[in-house]
């Protein structure tokens, strides 16, 4: 397929995934707010920190509270990483590549964007009232992926879409975990308390992971949660699962067998896949979860750049 079209397909699915995940970040904090005693709700600042755009945030907003952070992450049209901006970019992208995607996908995304725009323009008396909205964005993201799966042939369009989605999801799962770890652990006084349990439950919930986690583990501990979200072989939002799916699509596109590589992107993705396959959670926690996730995000960036060089850059 056309390089330019492949790029747009890849990015459109990354943007939708990104919007969905930002909704997940916000949703988990909203739930924590509702479940916490008054004045002991979660901090909103870490949500800003994990975007890496905190400098930009504090230039524009005075304090990081529920209102300002939700405005920033969900509805700020000047901030590129907000839900509304991601969906706008996804929509403009899909508008350009409608001919290789399905009509259902375009119409769904178009409707989704218009809905978010309506919400952005509406008055929100209390942040808690927006919870159902973020829940619906989560479902809409899943719906979009479902439409891709149900309506597209497994050709290059679908594979570039999945490659983008899985790389983005791996990155965002790592960030959800990173942020929550940052929020949850410092409150040493709460460790082992009900509030702590609520926190971890909310975290699993935000990754739609609670039920699957419970089927595997009956107690909630930081190690187990981290292990589940990073290394689980079967859970579709775990980082390892995402990387394995991304790798399958990459090799479907190039045609080279799994376990081999013919270009930088295959090599970088294969390496990451192997380290995840043979990692154990004890070692990760010992070295520091945050440090581990930071390194992982770096690897994901490298892979993204290699994919870009290999497929999208125009050479004559």
């Amino acid at each position: 397929m056309l390089s330019s079209v492949a790029e747009v397909v890849y990015w459109s699915s990354r943007y939708v995934e990104r919007a969905e995940n930002v909704a997940r970040f916000i949703d988990v904090n909203l739930h924590l707010t509702l479940d916490s005693p008054a004045n002991r709700g979660p901090s909103w600042e870490p949500l800003v920190m994990i975007t890496g755009d905190h400098k930009y945030f504090f230039k524009k907003y005075e304090t990081a509270d529920a209102n300002s952070v939700i405005q920033f992450l969900a509805f700020d049209t000047e901030y590129n990483g907000s839900i509304i901006s991601s969906l706008r970019q996804a929509r403009e992208n899909v508008r350009m590549v409608q001919h290789v995607l399905s009509r259902e996908m375009w119409q769904h995304l178009n409707d989704l964007y218009l809905r978010v725009k309506t919400e952005a323009d509406a008055e929100h008396p209390s942040p808690a009232e927006t919870s159902t909205f973020f829940d619906s964005i989560k479902l809409a993201g899943i719906h979009y992926e479902g439409l891709a799966n149900a309506t597209l042939s497994r050709g290059e369009s679908w594979h570039f879409g999945r490659l983008g989605r899985m790389l983005e999801r791996a990155d965002k799962t790592s960030r959800i975990l990173d942020a929550k770890y940052f929020i949850l652990l410092p409150q040493v006084r709460d460790v082992g308390t009900t509030l702590d349990q609520i926190g971890w439950t909310a975290l699993l919930n935000s990754a739609s992971a609670l039920q699957m986690y419970r089927q595997l583990h009956h107690v909630t501990t930081p190690d187990k949660v981290a292990e589940f979200l990073i290394l689980d072989r079967q859970f579709p939002r775990s980082i390892r699962f995402c990387i394995a799916e991304a790798q399958k699509s990459l090799h479907e596109i190039t045609g080279s067998p799994l376990g081999t590589f013919e270009n930088d992107s295959e090599q970088a993705l294969g390496r990451l896949r192997s380290t995840l396959d043979y990692a154990d959670i004890e070692a990760i926690m010992e070295g520091g979860l945050h440090e581990y996730l930071d390194g992982l995000q770096g690897n994901l960036n490298e892979i993204g750049e290699a994919v870009h060089r290999q497929f999208f850059e125009i050479q004559d």
Binding site: L2, S4, Q98, H99, F160, D316
Partner: peptide, 27 residues
């Protein structure tokens, strides 16, 4: 129309003249 016909929608940057033909840049 590209979608309905099932053909590529291209912009000028996707096309190049090479070896005597018009060619498009693909993956």
């Amino acid at each position: 129309l590209a979608q309905q016909m099932g053909v590529e929608l291209v912009e000028a940057r996707d096309l190049v003249v090479s070896s005597g033909y018009v060619q498009m840049r693909t993956t």
